[in-house]
Design a binder for these strands. Structure first.
Lengths: 231, 231
DNA sequence: CGCGGCTTTGATGTTCATCAAGTAAAGTGG
DNA sequence: CCACTTTACTTGATGAACATCAAAGCCGCG
């Protein structure tokens, strides 16, 4: 991790519209003084579960995984987050320690805001509070709905889902490089590494996708969608 | 469903300490005018998913299930909520329609507050907003953590968990009446009705629990805990 | 009284995890 | 830079966990 100089004042930040649009003048000035920018390389830990919460972080560029160690001592990935998802919002207002770990799966930059300052802002600016409630609720709903949907699918459906997820939601391209290892994909959609590989190979043999190492190319999105929906 | 007369003014409400402790005098008076009490019998629908959100509801007495229809056209129970869990808080700030259904599984009374009034309160009272954020975050965290834990357990572990859940968290008694059918238990912990029955019988044969219709009595909590933790 | 829903048990088959074993790739130290 | 270790990837064989199917008893309700 590396602290980087503020490239832009909050005034000019393109993420301002996200949540901080209602902050004006002096408020935004103080805001700018209570934040710092951080840079994480691929694989670096951004937040470690059970550590104390002192800052609220949000992702400006990159890609991260939200994960947690299960009782089986294996790691489980709860969600993948990209910019505009408010990654560390989770559990920030409910506990004094983080419930989840967050790790960069691509080089990521993060804006960190002092948590006490954020709380004082909620108290003094009602519209900001409402925006925050809205964003928080949406983030959680998405996680619950996704896990809910995945849990009623078979292996093939889950693999299809995750390929479509990276293609449509993250990279917006039929061809992309998987940011996760086969093992991590298993941790994300609840299956063994062997079966991740097996089903990817199966899809390749059936001409649904092309595989070259970590590069995936969707060759038949129609079928992939059907497998995702029915499987 | 039945609208019942206000039994007590918000001033005297024992649930005030939950969330509304910071409302004083006039604020609380207006609050009292913007709410109504509702009574639901066992089995009645409190909230239907995809319906418009006009009120924020919270449970004063009884027990409810939060559930949702899956793509498999089967119902899935996401969580069981009792008084002090803020049932309809979920998705209230993120969408204009409910994401989930809520159904009474025991006779329940609910306090309903106009949603626009609640929003105006968030805007004008920062401490109330912070309390709400806190409660919302806790509610969601609990759901995610519970589902997370259940998903890594085998059938026996899940059944053990649910028996302990009702015994320790809901009824505070070794002997209790299940508020759910075998089918609903399956919907809650993701297994078929037949397997719910099979494993309950197994536990009975092993002398871990006693079963008489819907009445369950825990006979060996030690073992049940071990099955829950290891299974 | 009979119908539908809930419960129970057994038999069967599918899905998936585990085990084993080998290849490829990627880091590590001399 | 090359031997060495480790980590990631891949495929097949086996068995366990679990869903599905079938059949029958039970109970509440119109």
């Amino acid at each position: 991790m590396q602290t980087v100089p503020h490239t832009v004042h909050c005034n000019e930040c393109k993420f301002r519209s996200l949540l901080f649009n209602n902050l004006k003048g002096e408020e935004l000035e103080i805001f700018n003084q209570n934040r710092r920018d951080l840079l994480f390389k691929k694989g670096e830990t951004i937040i470690k579960e059970s550590h104390e919460i002192t800052e609220f972080l949000y992702l400006k560029t990159g890609l991260v995984k939200i994960h947690k160690m299960g009782m089986d001592k294996n790691d489980h990935i709860i969600s993948i987050a990209q910019p505009l998802d408010f990654v560390s919002l989770l559990s920030i207002f409910s506990k004094s320690i983080f419930e989840f770990s967050i790790t960069a799966i691509e080089e990521s930059t993060v804006c960190a805001i002092n948590i006490e300052f954020l709380e004082s802002l909620v108290k003094s600016n009602g519209i900001f509070a409402l925006d925050l409630l809205n964003k928080l609720s949406t983030t959680y709903d998405n996680i619950i709905n996704t896990r809910f949907m995945l849990s009623s699918k078979h292996l093939r459906g889950r693999i299809a889902y995750i390929i479509l997820f990276f293609s449509n939601k993250i990279y917006h391209d039929n061809k992309f490089e998987l940011p996760l290892s086969r093992k991590e994909i298993g941790e994300l959609i609840n299956m063994t590494t062997e079966n991740v590989i097996r089903i990817l190979s199966e899809f390749r043999k059936d001409g649904i996708i092309g595989i070259d190492g970590k590069t995936i190319e969707i060759q038949n999105e129609e079928i992939l969608r059907k497998i995702c929906e029915l499987g």
